[in-house]
Simulated assay, not measured.
Amino acid sequence: MGSQNTPPAPAENISVLRKARRISRAALARQAGLTVSQLSKVETGLRPATPSLIAAVADALGVSTSRIYGQPYADASHQARALDALRAAVRRHDLPREDVLPPAALATKVQKAIGLRAQTRYLDLLDMLPEALGQATAVALSAPGEAGAWAQVADLYGCAYGVAHRMGQADLADMVVSRQMWAAQQTWAPDLEAAAAWNLAGTYQTAGQYDDGLAIVERAISQYERSLRGTANTPAQLISLGSLHLRGVVLASRHRDANATADHVSKAKSMAEQLPTDALVHNLTFGPGNTALYELAAYVELDRPHDAVRMATPLLKAPPPGLRPTRLGRLAIDTARAQLAVRKYEDAEKALAQAFAIAPEMTQTHPMAREVVRVLFVLNQRARPALLDMARRVGLAT
């Protein structure tokens, strides 16, 4: 599997960190609330490391979850330079060096960035973000009180969060979210503040701090509902509030809270029924289709893979309209996880192939996709050419 030239998968990092600390498998299992058999199967490649397990092990080892998730790129030289440029742009958030762009040119650039994020083209997005952030901020600072200009800054920071999160840069994601909130607060727009809160909760989700993330979501929902002074009626309002409930679905299911999960699913469904199709606003996708995808993912996290497979079959055959590659790719990854859990290995491989076809960059770096590939590769599947190709693409084989 992982070698000096290929980045290790999360489960491999667990084994390396445990041995480096001279902790026995039994001791780590006990501290993480796992059985020795569970941990053994994860470390030896017979079972994938789930987000909840990674969070528990990270806490027991006294490391961040990002240490376990690792860096998914085998050759990170170009990405490292581009990430350094993004870090510099985020650091000097109120000292842009770029010129003020004409409004139309800036609007075009912002829409391009949003499109790249939705298409999961993270490397192209990373390359354009430092300059775009500086230009958008220069425009906003040149027009004090102009909410529309600050909205563009906030949306670009939302794109930057997607890049930082997907590339395993937890510290950068934290810094980006603080800048997104700063920009959103200049707009006095509840929708933009909700989008920033959605990403803030995401940083807690990545860190495995699911209870704190849920607290962030509940606070954001309360604040947004107060701003409405009634109920959500417009598409933008439904998307903002519904998206917060979807974030709650993920956090609650990974926190193993079935009741809270069901509550967030129910509220999201109620709002999604008022929309004809899924739509994208401020980098948030919401509607009937995405709500179904989050419900499916919750079944996977709550160890109900048969329910997830039941939902996945019609969704993969006829994907909901309005969903971008970033969401459809995640649907295929969650389907692969569910198929693996019910031991339908060929179906898991097929779902992964769909994920690569729909969203190759996201699938290449997604830790759960890499875990499914790792387990399939170990389970006497090495002779399958398509699987070997996927293992190479995610950096788990040479």
Score class of each variant (00 low, 15 high):
residue 3 S to A: 05
residue 5 N to Y: 10
residue 11 A to F: 03
residue 13 N to M: 10
residue 15 S to F: 02
residue 17 L to Y: 05
residue 20 A to Q: 15
residue 24 S to D: 02
residue 25 R to Q: 14
residue 27 A to W: 01
residue 30 R to A: 15
residue 32 A to F: 04
residue 36 V to T: 14
residue 40 S to N: 12
residue 49 A to Y: 00
residue 53 L to V: 15
residue 54 I to S: 02
residue 59 D to H: 12
residue 63 V to H: 00
residue 67 R to P: 00
residue 77 S to K: 13
residue 82 A to H: 11
residue 82 A to M: 15
residue 85 A to R: 08
residue 87 R to L: 00
residue 88 A to D: 13
residue 90 V to F: 01
residue 93 H to I: 11
residue 108 T to S: 15
residue 118 A to C: 09
residue 121 R to E: 15
residue 122 Y to R: 05
residue 132 A to G: 05
residue 134 G to E: 14
residue 138 A to Q: 05
residue 145 G to D: 11
residue 149 A to G: 01
residue 156 L to V: 11
residue 161 Y to C: 09
residue 165 H to R: 13
residue 166 R to M: 15
residue 167 M to K: 04
residue 169 Q to K: 03
residue 174 D to R: 10
residue 184 A to L: 09
residue 188 W to T: 10
residue 189 A to S: 12
residue 194 A to D: 13
residue 202 G to S: 07
residue 205 Q to Y: 09
residue 209 Q to I: 00
residue 210 Y to E: 03
residue 214 L to E: 03
residue 232 A to R: 05
residue 239 I to H: 07
residue 248 G to D: 05
residue 256 R to L: 09
residue 260 A to N: 12
residue 265 V to Q: 12
residue 265 V to S: 02
residue 269 K to V: 14
residue 271 M to V: 02
residue 273 E to I: 03
residue 275 L to R: 01
residue 277 T to I: 13
residue 278 D to S: 10
residue 282 H to F: 13
residue 283 N to Q: 11
residue 285 T to D: 02
residue 287 G to N: 07
residue 292 A to S: 14
residue 293 L to A: 02
residue 295 E to Y: 01
residue 295 E to D: 09
residue 296 L to N: 10
residue 300 V to D: 08
residue 304 R to M: 13
residue 305 P to S: 11
residue 315 L to D: 07
residue 316 L to M: 12
residue 316 L to K: 00
residue 321 P to R: 04
residue 322 G to D: 00
residue 323 L to M: 07
residue 324 R to D: 06
residue 326 T to S: 12
residue 331 L to S: 09
residue 332 A to W: 07
residue 346 E to C: 02
residue 346 E to Y: 10
residue 347 D to Q: 06
residue 353 A to Y: 01
residue 354 Q to C: 06
residue 355 A to N: 02
residue 357 A to K: 15
residue 358 I to M: 08
residue 358 I to Q: 05
residue 364 Q to S: 11
residue 369 A to T: 09
residue 378 V to W: 08
residue 383 A to V: 07
residue 383 A to D: 14
residue 388 L to Y: 06
residue 389 D to W: 04
residue 391 A to E: 07
residue 392 R to Q: 11
residue 395 G to A: 01
residue 398 T to A: 10
